[in-house]
Design a protein around this nucleic acid. Structure first.
Lengths: 189, 189
DNA sequence: AGGCCCATGTAATCTGTTACATGATTCC
DNA sequence: GGAATCATGTAACAGATTACATGGGCCT
């Protein structure tokens, strides 16, 4: 039931359409959760039916019409309840880690390639997130913003996202380098 | 289909029982994946039926009998295929991040408490993982082990796990401190 | 002309969680 | 005496992914 609350949290800042939310949750700009568009459309329908969000149709000419959603009072209350309930620890689930776990038994070439790709992906995401941070804090420096800004939730989750992507980037590069060196040493005798 | 491969990867090092695997995957000693016992027993049954692992009954006196599993040739081949297939990027899904995203609209007290708990959990896990690393590399230093050790996959994933938990710990502490300070400043005027 | 972006959904399937069930042994 | 550990499962449900469906406008 956490996708509901992730959606509510995302709609706190702005009225958004399903499509806009889908982009954020799919491409991972929303650092705190991830979901496919289909899941979002379904959950948005449920949230509206339950009265936690309110949608309004926006008629457009050159594009298909869209529905913009915002959180209702009941939605805010639901978020309060969620925040008060106990959170379970989060766990890693990553294809790439499974592959590295098996590194000694599978082809290192494929692994190095995938590690390199992931490193690049992480690097690109760091840039996007850094821009996001800069936009959010505006002219202020980070400390001042975090002390006096009115809306720091998204900034805090974004900080976690950046650290995560930086760590991913470094680990991928280091791991790829180690595997390459071992492969070279292996071939060289 | 990644749980299958996570199980295969876990069974590369040793013949293990469902129960042993469950402990590793549930408490998160297996840094590369997480799953509940029930899911493992189901998946182990499927893996055996498909001939990717072989089980053998071990009769015990003072305890219930158990089944020990090891990877077959077909299982190894399946892992090879998996390693060669493209991995999709991994995504964050964390209750706690959702709550922090909504931090400006929900009760800070609950949040600070949960952040503190999570920080402690992460700290404890770092210790466990550091011990694991020390056990794996034995007398050698890290560089030497990574260059010449025969089985470095689990060490590499463990390194990623430690960095992750350390980052979680620091972020939780910092975030809790920021929220506490804002609460105090809020009350103080 | 072909492909991407906007915009929303349904249906089928797969994956993961929760609740339930059993029963002996060891530790405090 | 009560809790934790060992050991394996079944059944019901909730959550997530994949495939399919539609259709105009914009860019190259």
């Amino acid at each position: 039931m956490a996708l509901r609350h992730a959606l509510l949290a995302a709609l706190l800042d702005a009225e958004l359409s399903g499509y806009q939310l889908a982009k954020a949750f799919d491409l991972g700009v929303a650092n705190f959760w991830h979901a496919q568009p289909q899941q979002l459309y379904a959950e948005l329908a449920r949230l509206e039916k339950d009265g936690l969000i309110a949608g309004r149709e926006v008629v457009q000419e050159a594009r298909p019409n869209k529905r913009m959603f915002k959180v209702t009072e009941a939605g805010l209350a639901a978020l309060h309840g969620f925040a008060a309930s106990s959170a379970r620890p989060s766990f890693i689930r990553d294809d790439l880690l499974v592959k590295v776990q098996a590194a000694d038994h599978v082809d290192a070439g494929h692994l190095v390639q995938q590690l390199t790709e992931r490193a690049e992906f992480a690097r690109a995401k760091v840039e996007v997130l850094e821009n996001l941070l800069r936009t959010m804090r505006g002219e202020r420096d980070e400390d001042a913003f975090l002390r006096h800004g009115e809306r720091i939730g998204p900034y805090l989750t974004c900080l976690r996202g950046i650290t995560h992507e930086r760590a991913t980037h470094e680990w991928c590069e280091r791991t790829a380098r180690i595997l390459r060196e071992r492969k070279a040493a292996d071939a060289g005798h």
